[in-house]
């Protein structure tokens, strides 16, 4: 039973690619055969996050246009050997792939892999329509911020229009302190508007940036809070019941610092 999951958001910069890389890595570390398909043609980043840029030989466009079989374009991860990347082209644009070609490719990939994760481009234009065409499950990534939630809502509507019923939500980059002080939308506000099944709440974490620059997803780092959140999401995707993380309230020392104005 293989599953095609598309990771989408509408708005850019909310962490689609980061989420794809981390979930892919997490599922692979749990022993699943995983392939990550980057459909953000022209603005590819997924290879950077995985540290695989220098190993790319062929890309998605070469495969869909029939120049090479898909196996030649797959890039195996350096450390996790059951994780593969199917990168896209940096020189072409999104009109280079159409939905039928991607559906056909996913049908082939299904034979080999347990999970096929598709990293969707931002926006609701052709690139989005192509990316969602083959998906069984859609994961919508959003941020606790009004424009990201608004765009997520629009995307959920678009997914419904394309008859994608299985939609999950990940709320990324939550700042517990700001939520606490009422400066940021909290989970209740978001659930109220979007009303879809939430499978993850990822805190804002500096380690995400360092891990991105190093090409190692933060899910591999034990100390990263975001990494822990992603590990939980992977568990939930595999059908486990994992309780949501509780964010630590502002600690005693940081409050003390506030008192002394440090």
């Amino acid at each position: 039973m293989s599953e095609v999951i598309v990771i989408t958001s509408g708005k850019g910069g909310v962490g689609k690619t980061t989420t794809t890389a981390n979930l892919g890595m997490g599922l692979a570390m749990r022993g699943k055969n995983v392939v990550l398909v980057d459909t953000d043609t022209g603005l590819r980043n997924l290879d950077l996050l995985l540290g695989l840029e220098n190993r790319i030989m062929y890309d998605l466009i070469d495969v869909t246009q029939g120049r090479v079989p898909y196996k030649k374009a797959l890039v195996r991860h350096k450390k996790v050997e059951n994780l593969f990347l199917l990168p896209t082209s940096q020189v072409k644009d999104k009109s280079a792939v159409n939905p039928e070609e991607l559906v056909k490719l996913c049908e082939e990939l299904r034979k080999e892999f347990d999970y096929i994760l598709i990293d969707c481009p931002a926006g609701i234009e052709q690139g989005f329509q192509t990316a969602i065409a083959a998906a069984d499950v859609a994961i919508v990534v959003t941020m606790p911020e009004i424009s990201a939630v608004r765009d997520a809502d629009k995307i959920i509507g678009e997914l419904g229009r394309a008859d994608k019923e299985n939609i999950k939500l990940i709320v990324n980059r939550i700042r517990p302190q700001m939520v606490e002080s009422g400066d940021m939308l909290d989970m209740d506000d978001i659930n109220d508007i979007l009303s879809i099944d939430c499978i993850g709440q990822v805190p804002d974490d500096k380690m995400v940036i360092t891990s991105t620059n190093r090409g190692e997803p933060c899910i591999t780092m034990d100390k990263s809070t975001a990494g822990q959140a992603y590990r939980n999401i992977v568990g939930r995707l595999l059908g486990e019941k994992v309780p949501f993380m509780t964010f630590p309230k502002e600690g005693f020392f940081s409050r003390l610092k506030h008192v002394f104005g440090m």
Partner: peptide, 25 residues
């Protein structure tokens, strides 16, 4: 019988009953 999300529109000459939310947009 569903939530109307951003960008969706109902336009009719008659009355409308929505069993769900009407979201911004």
């Amino acid at each position: 019988n569903k939530t109307l999300r951003g960008g969706q529109e109902v336009r009719t000459k008659s009355s409308v009953l929505v069993c769900g939310n009407v979201n911004p947009g």
